[in-house]
């Protein structure tokens, strides 16, 4: 409990708690809609936003938000254009995002690569009070949106044609979902890092899908697993003096391996 005597650890726990709920909630929909790579794509694209911020000498979070929202719109357009092989859209944006980030970094003076490194790997223990507050607001917004739109999202995730016939605005909903995912990624990146943010979205969701039968239970399990993985990862990181993001990801992978093993034994 010594770790809680430090202010930075208390903030880290709070931020981890918020992210442990936000990330898997979005992650379940990403996994079921076969959009697992969307989180990766948007986190890569966000690097271009961060590099743009440094290039223009503006707040990188604001430029990242702008770039990620535009990318989410482009992504939805490409997804409808390449319906039969929709992963093409993620590949195009992922490589495009990285290319723009590298180009802008090379044009920026003032040690941009060092600053970008901070966003690439994140740092939950250097999180500021205002970042915790922003995550808190995002946490409340996503919970409210989830409670409000759970049913339309369920049908949209089941089958888009059925959703259209049921009267849902399929494209607008997909677009809004991509934008919300993009905003969440943008706000989590300074903490979790661009390389690991998709892991904390996708891994708890994947584990939960192996455990739960019903939609509600899968969502609930993904949040519980998110909390277990995030918080135990933070403790391990503190005790072993290892990078938090990487430690959290490895804890999730260990849980996934254990759950898969447990299921294999049970089905024998």
């Amino acid at each position: 409990m010594e770790m809680f005597s430090f202010e930075f650890m208390r903030k880290a726990w709070l931020a981890a708690g918020f992210m442990a709920v936000i990330a898997p909630m979005l992650g379940v929909f990403l996994v079921v809609r076969r959009q697992s790579l969307l989180a990766d794509t948007l986190s890569h694209v966000s690097l271009a936003g961060i590099a743009l911020g440094f290039f223009l000498n503006q707040n990188p979070t604001m430029t990242t938000l702008l770039v990620v929202i535009i990318s989410a719109v482009v992504l939805e357009y490409l997804r409808t254009m390449y319906q039969s092989y929709s992963e093409v859209s993620t590949a195009i944006l992922m490589s495009g995002g990285l290319a723009v980030a590298l180009l802008l970094m090379s044009l920026t003076k003032d040690n941009a690569p060092m600053k970008i490194n901070q966003y690439l790997f994140g740092s939950i223990i250097t999180i500021s009070q205002s970042q915790v507050k922003v995550l808190g607001v995002l946490f409340v917004i996503i919970i409210l949106l989830f409670l409000l739109f759970k049913r339309p999202m369920y049908v949209l995730t089941f089958d888009e044609d059925t959703a259209h016939v049921d009267g849902l605005p399929v494209h607008r909903m997909s677009l809004l979902f991509n934008i919300i995912t993009g905003v969440a990624i943008t706000l989590m990146i300074p903490i979790a890092g661009a390389l690991l943010v998709s892991a904390i979205m996708i891994l708890p969701a994947t584990i939960a899908m192996n455990l739960g039968k019903s939609f509600n239970r899968v969502i609930f399990s993904s949040i519980v697993i998110g909390l277990i993985g995030m918080l135990s990862g933070l403790v391990f990181s503190y005790q072993l003096n290892t990078p938090p993001g990487a430690t959290i990801t490895l804890v999730f992978i260990a849980i996934l391996a254990l759950v898969s093993l447990g299921q294999k034994i049970r089905h024998k």
């Binding site: 996994v31 049913r151 369920y154 049908v155 089958d159 899908m209 039968k213 019903s214 939609f215 899968v218």
Partner: peptide
């Protein structure tokens, strides 16, 4: 329609109930 995503996390009851949402 029956070839929908095999991993779709839903019980039969939830899926059929979703027919009432509209």
């Amino acid at each position: 329609i029956a070839s929908f995503n095999a991993g779709f996390p839903s019980t039969v009851l939830e899926l059929v109930q979703s027919g009432r949402f509209s």
